[in-house]
Every structure is written in C-alpha cells, then in structure tokens.
C-alpha cells in the first residue's frame, strides 16, 4: 500500500496520547515506569521528552493513591491517563476504580464527571504465572459505570485511545501484552497495521467484522481475534467459511453486530482468554440465545480459559490457553465436518 505506516499497538497508543496532549492541556499521564522508561510495555515512549515531567509522571508503587488521585483530578477538570502496569494488580486499588471512578458520575447525579483513561496490560502465554497473566476483562465489564475497550490491532489502538481521551466517562483501556509489538513478549504480526498520521477516533461500542464468513461466527477480543483469524484460515482450506467478530469494546457491547452475524451463520463460538465462568463468553452467548434461539443450528460453544489460576509451566499454561486449533476443532464439530487428516 502506498504511504503505508505500519505501527505497533504500543506506538499507536503513544501517538494517540501525544496528539491529544498537543491540543488538550488537561491531559496528563501517570503510572509506574511510564516516564523515563516509556512504560514497561512501551506505550508511553516519547511522551516525557515532548511534554516534560509535569504532564508525564512516574508514580510511587501506590496504586490506590494515584488511581484515586486520577479520579479527583478528573472531577476537577483534568483528563488523567493512568497506567496500572498489569491488570492483575487491580487487587490493591480496586476501590478507587469501581467505587469511585465508576460510580461518582451516577452518585453525583451528573454534577461531577470522571473523564479519565485507565490503561492496563492483560494476557499471558509467556509463562509469567498467575499474578501477571490474567485478562480479567469480565470483572471490569461486570461492574457498571466504566467503559471497557481492548484493541486487537494498531489502527484500532490509536482510534480507541483518542476516543477514550475525548469521552466524558472513565474508560478502561486494556492492551494485550502479546499484541504490544514488544519483541521480548513475542510479536503478533497481525496486530501491526497501517496507522494514519492524523488523529481519528474509533467509536467505543462498535464491533468490527475482522473477516467475513457464512458458516460459523467466531466472536472474540484482543489476542483471541488473532486466534480466530488463524482458525478461519485453516477452516477455509476445508471449505468452512468462518466469520470473525472483533468486539473491540465490552462496555458498551455491540450486541447487534453479534446477533446479525449469528443470524447469518447459525453457529457461534466465543473465544475468551479470560476465565470461563461468569464472564464475557457467557454474556455473548446469552446475547444470542435471549433473542435469536431460532437462528442457531447448533448449541453455542466457548473456548475460554478454564477456571483455574494461571500456571507457570509452559506445558500447563499452553494447555489452558485458547488457540487456533481448539477453535477450528470446535468449528468443525459445529459444522459436522470431519477432522482433517
């Protein structure tokens, strides 16, 4: 493609923040190791150099303190972007998130707004064990009052960040480590995409059809979308046409796009790297079965992380994680197709 500008998700996130900081002096960024280091996952690189220490702040390891501070600053006219380095650390600061950030707009009857972005890394697959590998998408999406997004590629990463920064509400921006484009965490080639120079928004709450198909709908988010796309490639060789829906946002959830896809294909597989029970996969299936039972030619399936803490050992972790083979196998079963030789 002419004028193609391929960026990683990490760089796309930083670019969106920089562009918004240039035009909106109320935006500032804080978190652990986000200034001098540019973020452990690279998503704030270059911000300190351009905007200085006042607006790009390394914090002490005090998540309750600085996320609570972001709430207070947001209510006082600023637009803070705060980073919780790994989503797994939400345990030490969740009150600031779900009892303050997510509720103060409602409690105040709208006389306070809480326009802030909380960005946090998700996901495993590289043997970081059970306190550094979780997704926890569903835990955030379950609690009312905060928007929740997670990009699968750099184009969406930039547009969702810009939209989040312009949203008058708190947005949890979850980025999957395996998609960040940091070499030391591996690199998912499909996440590195063309990113326009200029600022743009990707609407929060709109899913994307990542691949069109006729026979089965694969719904996922973030890393799961890439597993779905790889499964779709494999299935195509066998004559099964899979449609892949990238949710991009969990709150609000684009139920219409999911329903319309299943209305077309009649089969549903939800792929979720978060825990199996009480989460995103159940919500998506309920979205379809509550209104579109008649569309389904087979019971829906979910390929999710089993209900166990995430183990360190590679063989055990890989056994638990969703992957393209598991998705393709489920799709073949749903379509009544034989296992290929």
């Amino acid at each position: 493609m002419e004028n193609e500008r391929k960026l990683t998700i990490a760089r796309a996130m930083a670019e969106a923040m920089a562009q918004e900081m240039r035009i909106d002096p109320s935006v500032f960024v804080m978190g652990e190791d986000i200034a001098e280091l540019g973020g452990v996952f690279g998503n704030t690189r270059g911000l300190l150099e351009e905007f200085g220490k006042e607006r790009v702040r390394d914090t002490p390891i005090s998540e309750t303190g600085f996320i609570g501070a972001a709430v207070g600053a947001a209510q006082d006219g600023m637009k803070p972007v705060v980073e919780l380095m790994f989503v797994d650390f939400f345990g030490v600061c969740f009150d600031a998130i779900y009892n303050l950030m997510a509720k103060n707009t409602y409690f105040s009857g709208g006389n306070f707004n809480v326009p802030m972005v909380l960005m946090t890394s998700t996901g495993g697959g590289y043997s970081d064990a059970g306190q550094h590998s979780q997704c926890l998408y569903g835990s955030f999406a379950h609690l009312p009052g905060m928007k929740v997004v997670s990009p699968s590629n750099a184009y969406d990463a930039k547009g969702l960040m810009t939209a989040a920064l312009r949203d008058p509400n708190p947005v949890i921006y979850m980025f999957h480590k395996g998609l960040q484009g940091m070499g030391w965490l591996g690199t998912e080639a499909g996440a590195i995409t063309h990113v326009p120079d200029e600022s743009y928004e990707v609407e929060i709450g709109k899913a994307a059809i990542a691949r069109e198909g006729r026979d089965v709908t694969i719904v996922s988010i973030a890393q799961g979308v890439h597993h779905g796309l790889k499964a779709a490639d494999a299935l195509a060789q066998q004559g099964i046409s899979a449609e892949v829906v990238d949710l991009r946002s969990l709150v609000p959830l684009d139920r219409e796009t999911v329903r319309a896809s299943v209305a077309k294909t009649g089969r549903l597989i939800v792929v979720d790297e978060d825990y199996h029970s009480y989460g995103v996969s159940g919500e998506i299936i309920a979205t379809v079965t509550e209104s579109n039972m008649a569309d389904l030619k087979a019971p829906p399936r979910r390929i999710a992380y089993p209900d166990v803490p995430i183990p360190f050992a590679r063989v055990m972790e890989q056994h638990c994680l969703p992957n393209a083979d598991k998705i393709a196998a489920a799709a073949r079963e749903l379509c009544g197709a034989p296992v290929p030789a």
């Binding site: 059970g130 803490p309 360190f312 055990m316």
Partner: peptide, 25 residues
C-alpha cells in the same frame, strides 16, 4: 509446586517460606 508457581511464587511449607509477586503483599 509442581511447576504451577515458578520463580516469583516459591512456597515451601517445610520451612515456612512463601512469596507474592504483588508488591508489599
């Protein structure tokens, strides 16, 4: 721990030793 914990989660009840990878926990 049979490989469940790894380097940040060393647990040995024989000598009352436990870890957390979450700061100050």
């Amino acid at each position: 721990s049979g490989g469940r914990g790894g380097h940040m989660h060393i647990f040995d009840a024989e000598v009352n030793f436990a870890c957390s990878g979450i700061i100050a926990q």
